[in-house]
Structures are given as C-alpha cells and as structure tokens.
Amino acid sequence: MAPIILDVDVRRKVFRSRAGPEHVVLADMRFSLAEREIVALVGPSGCGKTTLLRLIGRLDHDFEGRITWHGQEAPRIGTVFQEPRLLPWRTVRENLLLVTPPDCVETVDELLRALGLWPHRDSYPTQISLGMARRASIARAFAIRPDIVLLDEPFVSLDPSMAERGRQVLLDAWQRRPTTGLLVTHDLLDAAALADRVLMLAGSPTRIVSEVVIPPANRRAGTEAAHAFAQELRLLRPVEPVLFPDVSAASSDRR
C-alpha cells in the first residue's frame, strides 16, 4: 500500500446564515488518501460535497477538525470546479499558462494535445463548447503538476455520451500525470469508472455511511465494467440505512 499523504478529519462544519439558525453540514468526516489513490465521494446533491472540497482545497478554513497533509510543505492542489471557471479574456492555452510555473510550458502543450484541445488552444472560452471548456479545466488542474487533484462533479450537466468522453479524457490525463485524486460526484457511474475506492455519503449532517474498495480487476476497466460496477454499487446502497437508521429518510428521498 502506498503511503498515506492526506488525512481528513472534519469533526463539524457549520453554516451560519445571518439571521437563521446554525446548520451543521458535515460531521465526523474521517478518511485518508494514499499516494496516487483515487477516491470518489458519492452523495446526493446539496449534501455538502463541494463544501468538503473547499475545506480540503484550503478555500475555507472555518471548521472544527484537521486536514493534514503528509507530503511536502505546501501541496500543489489542482482543482476542477463544477463549472469550468476559465478566464473568458484569455485563450485556452493562456488560461493554462497563467496558473502554471514557467517550467511547465511543455506540460501544458502535452496536455492540450492529449486532451484533444490543441486545435482550440488559441480560442477564447466563449468560442468553445461546454464539454470542451470542461476538458480545458481538467487540463488546467493537471498542468500545474499537482500533488492532488480535486474534482467537483466534473461532468455534471453533460449528456451521457459527453460525460463518457469526459471520463475518458480524465483517465488519459491521469495516465499521463499519475497523481492522487479526490472526486466528488452524485453519479455512481463516475465513481465506478474512475475510482479505486468509493465513500458513500448520506444523512444530515452528512457522514460517511459506507466504504467500497473497487476490486483491482474492475478499476478503470472500460465502459462496460464501469456500468456493471455502478449497478453493483446501486444495489449496495439501500442496505446501508439498516446499519445507519438516521439516514434512511435521506436515502429513500433520493430514489
């Protein structure tokens, strides 16, 4: 087993609205990531997955608990946001070059070619499709030679075939630049197609309700295998509420 590089221990994350009462979003969220391991966090929309990624990505420091990085002093974190978040006044290539150190120019061009963006490298984000913009945002996260990549529902609002293509692009990027990955999604298919390990989230406040290690033979084994394994995960889900009675309501809502 590769060494652990990230320990996440979020005991409590509270949202305070200006007038309303406190709302505990996350509780007792404890897991670790091994080096070059890809973990998927699967949970319903609005359960606080994005919030968790913001904590890990150091965009939000207001929580109880600890997130410990065991690698170098400051990890390079490549984030793929839910929306592409490209700067509209810079071309695709300029968007990548802006965030990368000067010695990464070759990485940028290599990724642009690998992800099928080379013909569009000088286009502005307004001139390309959403699918393409998402690909550019994936390329950007990998271009900084990250220690960890955080992905927040990278294929949401793409039709199934575009999402399929997106997953393929992500796998290509991963193959080229192996790195630790944390993927947040509501889609079991994303998890089955990309991850080594799946953590299921449910409840209010959101907790980890189960953990599934994908057998090595089934990992990133193509579309067929992903669909089959997603089906298995789907069957596995309703069993959990028996073990965690407080989440039964939440998971039956989702069906």
Binding site: L59, G78, T79, F81
Partner: peptide
C-alpha cells in the same frame, strides 16, 4: 473566478 485564482 476569484476563488479559482485563490485555489491555483
């Protein structure tokens, strides 16, 4: 976009 800049 500001958050993007922050994260990178």
């Amino acid at each position: 976009l500001v958050e993007m800049a922050q994260s990178f």
